[in-house]
């Protein structure tokens, strides 16, 4: 077999995956510090898991890493659509298939023989992460420039609405990452594949 047939993840995918991971960690940790300055709910994030030290520092991190998140995300989406990978890897996808694979996973019957094939739960989860990241960027854009993006602002329920959307989209992303890490821990070969491509 040639190297090409062994490749599970092309190099552009691995690069954008890890850059995205870095961006998400910086955005989340600095975002928690920004949240702490004026909590939406009756809790704060522990200082030890936040980034930036004080509000001004956290904002600097947040508004620097946003460029990495957005630019890298754009490259990922363009490559994904341009190469047709998004269609090949994520579709077809049906609720029935997701439920079937979810049940199989709980019974420990999901096959991981070919890591190039995403099962239906993976497909749904990764597509969810993509959509959630887009929502984070759009709601973040409203929080950053609410006057300059009136249509987006009104779609997200105004400035205060966008704050809530941004918070819950963050919570959903954190939940995704936790499940994602747990799954990777259960099938460590997937981590190797994401690092060396095969």
């Amino acid at each position: 077999m040639t190297a090409a047939t062994l490749t599970i993840h092309p190099v552009w995918l691995r690069a954008t995956h890890w850059l995205n991971a870095l961006a998400v960690v910086i955005m989340t940790m600095s975002g928690w510090r920004i949240y702490n300055a004026s909590p939406l709910f009756d809790f704060k994030f522990a200082k030890e898991i936040t980034l930036g030290g004080w509000l001004g520092g956290a904002i600097q991190w947040h508004f620097a890493a946003m460029w990495l998140l957005a630019a890298n995300g754009l490259v990922y989406l363009l490559c994904n659509v341009g190469t047709g990978r998004i269609v090949r890897k994520f579709f077809p996808l049906s609720p029935r298939a997701i439920i079937a694979d979810l049940l199989a996973a709980f019974r420990g019957q999901l096959s991981h023989a070919d890591l190039r094939q995403y099962n239906a739960v993976q497909r749904a989860a990764y597509l969810f992460a993509i959509v959630d990241a887009v929502l984070l960027v759009l709601s973040g854009l409203v929080l950053w420039k609410s006057v300059q993006f009136p249509l987006l602002r009104e779609l997200l329920g105004g400035y205060e609405g966008a704050r809530l959307v941004h918070f819950f989209a963050m919570a959903a992303m954190v939940a995704f990452v936790m499940v994602h890490l747990a799954m990777t821990a259960m099938v460590p070969r997937t981590l190797l594949a994401m690092i060396r491509g095969r």
């Binding site: 960690v25 940790m29 030890e48 898991i49 936040t50 980034l51 930036g52 030290g53 004080w54």
Partner: peptide, 12 residues
């Protein structure tokens, strides 16, 4: 102090 505070986190 700002410098130190911003870098005191273990996460970095």
């Amino acid at each position: 102090l700002f410098l130190r505070r911003s870098l005191s986190l273990g996460g970095l």
